[in-house]
Design a binder for these strands. Sequence first.
DNA 1: TTGAAACCCGACAGAACCAGTCGGAATTAT
DNA 2: ATAATTCCGACTGGTTCTGTCGGGTTTCAA
Lengths: 163, 163
Amino acid sequence: MEITARSEYAIRALLMLAEAHSAGTDALPVATLAYRQELPAKFLEVIMGQLRRGGLVTSKRGASGGYRLAVSPRELKVGAVIRTVDGPLAGVRGIRPSDTAYSGPAAHLPVVWVAVRAALRRVLDEVSIDDILTGDFPPEVAQLAKDPEAWQDRWPLKAPVQD
Amino acid sequence: MEITARSEYAIRALLMLAEAHSAGTDALPVATLAYRQELPAKFLEVIMGQLRRGGLVTSKRGASGGYRLAVSPRELKVGAVIRTVDGPLAGVRGIRPSDTAYSGPAAHLPVVWVAVRAALRRVLDEVSIDDILTGDFPPEVAQLAKDPEAWQDRWPLKAPVQD
DNA sequence: TTGAAACCCGACAGAACCAGTCGGAATTAT
DNA sequence: ATAATTCCGACTGGTTCTGTCGGGTTTCAA
């Protein structure tokens, strides 16, 4: 259950574009985006290409070119960003949760996988880029993050040795 | 957001042990577990070692030895299994959600990561091995899986080409 | 028209991780 | 004794992740 650097960088880039969007600024070149959030420029270039092909941003080449949002920040959901650059939100050994099947005592296991995916969706497909910009999250998500325990780490039954 | 083969195999093995547990059967050797659910035997052997060191199972060596549950199936949660064999449930580029920090327009991003982890916990730390065995899930999880839409795939803004 | 700014693209590379195997040592019941 | 079984370290082949490199192409502006 890892958020990749790819997805993280994509979201941070889009946040900058959303900020510029509301300020009515010109297109932002990769160099600027990379500098402002300290992201590896050439890698980000690859990622921006994915976002463009996915229709999340538009690009303009040449001098004073750069990237612009193609979708309003309010309608652009984090889940869509992740799916665009990293593929499906959830998988089990590479297959979709709803395509899993087991025999015997594991027969009901797909229910768990589907519930996991559904739980992820209820966060990632609800939160928009604009929500992150303003810090004003949908009630469902705000509720989850409000609990102080959500900010604490949890350990397995036997805690690993401290070193 | 991938469930690894490791975690999946661990859960399926524990489900078999839980079944035997209620039937009061003897300890189950790896060979039997691997055969019954068609898991790679030597790999499962490694995984069972992790579960033992994590305190989820006990082992007996030698003839008519094998593995037994060390925790009652009802108290053994899926989240604990995953943490034992694969480490933390959620991470962002390898760091814990609550340890992330960003500047500028990404300042509120950690709220999203923490909410993601909390959402995962609400499923994985609620569902027990016994729940999966019986197919009788906690209301929260049952609710998520009840929705037919939860069993459907979702696509990013621009659907990928079919091939 | 020239040059610089920027996107665009394919190839490559190192590192890490994942899934799984191999061979054998230690332990235990019969 | 012997067979069954856990236990353990080393190893491997493949894939993915995170980038980098070098150059081609488009566009603006002077």
